[in-house]
Amino acid sequence: MSIDWAALGQVFGVTLVVTVGIVGLFTLGIVGTSRKPHQEGEAVAAAGPGGAARAGAYACFALCAAAVAYGIYLIVAA
């Protein structure tokens, strides 16, 4: 009986990298599109994100969408 440690390790590695990567990207997207933190006692209303931040955030979301598309491809092709 041989346990396929290589396959198990591979699954673990890929899962960890993909999960953390996608969640990280998506979170950056959320951070980029949400309002800046609102300081206590500050009179100004919370500012919206700048153009660059917004563009970066959309790039993050696009990468996540690509990952989902690849996931669907894996399901269909499996």
């Binding site: 396929d4 396959a7 198990l8 591979q10 699954v11 890929v14 899962t15 993909v18 999960t19 996608i22 969640v23 998506f26 996931g71 894996l74 399901i75 499996a78």
Partner: peptide, 17 residues
């Protein structure tokens, strides 16, 4: 997301979980 990644990675790499 972790669940989706695990399921797809494992079934694709032939170590079905």
């Amino acid at each position: 997301t972790g669940a989706a990644a695990t399921i797809l990675a494992s079934s694709h790499l032939g170590f079905a979980l």
